[in-house]
Design a protein around this nucleic acid. Structure first.
Lengths: 135, 135
DNA sequence: TTATCCTGTTAGACAAAGTCTAGAAAACAA
DNA sequence: TTGTTTTCTAGACTTTGTCTAACAGGATAA
């Protein structure tokens, strides 16, 4: 998933026009399963990459990727959103001391009872976060 | 839990000196089980209450209450932290369209398998958030 | 009573994430 | 080529939250 053509195909397959900036951002995100904040990606694009992208483009692009299901927003840190390049079902450990976010495989948690949703609503995702601290 | 003396006792029982501002904030929070943001509480204190409190005091106080286990921080909205006056075990629905946060009783969700924690860490809370949208 | 301490409160400056706007640049179609 | 649409950009702006340095007020000691 790291070569440019694969990234371009992936974007097209999700209905995202593969512009220079979007491909740059996608290449960073999809290099491996990881959790990055918008500001981290902004720095990475403007250091590691050949081309650059503005703050507005980073935010717009991440919002677009999230809407198209290419990445998943993870809200565990009150100060910033993480974008998870792994969109398959899984959960998270969040270390409140280090700020580190790590994956819990889907099969490591089993939920055998869930509530009915409120009238007039539908599910948009189930999140399980195990907050941990250094002992 | 709404009269002043009960609030004062509650604070003392948690090792919190019951100052004027803290009691004001606690009275608002513990009037009923609810989810309020710091900015909401700031407005409420300076409108509804006899006394007032500054922004810094609101944030300091909510941080103190959270540390003492009087309230629980709920992180579901990327733009603000909610303070939950119900600290007993329960989970949350979060409506991404309305921003509304509602409770799921503890017994409506059953988790029968949980992962081992990473080496050198201990649990600091299990969160389950069911994100919903209007259908 | 007065001085001293300690805790808590305050205004306002500051920081950081994220949004918005208006114009420039690409991309594309005719 | 020209016109139209989409994307990108700088930078102003907003909001939540933090920090600092001064101040207030109660308890205590002399």
């Amino acid at each position: 998933m790291s070569n440019r053509d694969d990234i371009v195909s992936k974007l097209k397959a999700s209905g995202v026009t593969p512009t220079t900036q979007r491909v740059e951002i996608a290449q960073i995100l999809f290099a491996r399963p990881q959790h990055l904040s918008a500001e981290q990606i902004l720095k990475m694009v403007n250091q590691e990459s050949s081309s650059t992208a503005s703050k507005a483009t980073i935010y717009n692009t991440l919002g677009l990727f999230a809407k198209k299901g290419l990445v998943k927003e993870v809200i565990v840190d009150p100060s910033k959103v993480f974008y998870d390049s792994n969109v398959s079902k899984h959960f998270h450990f969040y270390n409140i001391d280090s700020g580190e976010l790590t994956d819990i495989p889907a099969d490591a948690i089993h939920i055998d009872k869930l509530p009915n949703l409120p009238q007039g609503t539908e599910s948009s995702g189930l999140e399980v976060i195990v907050r941990i601290k250094n002992s």
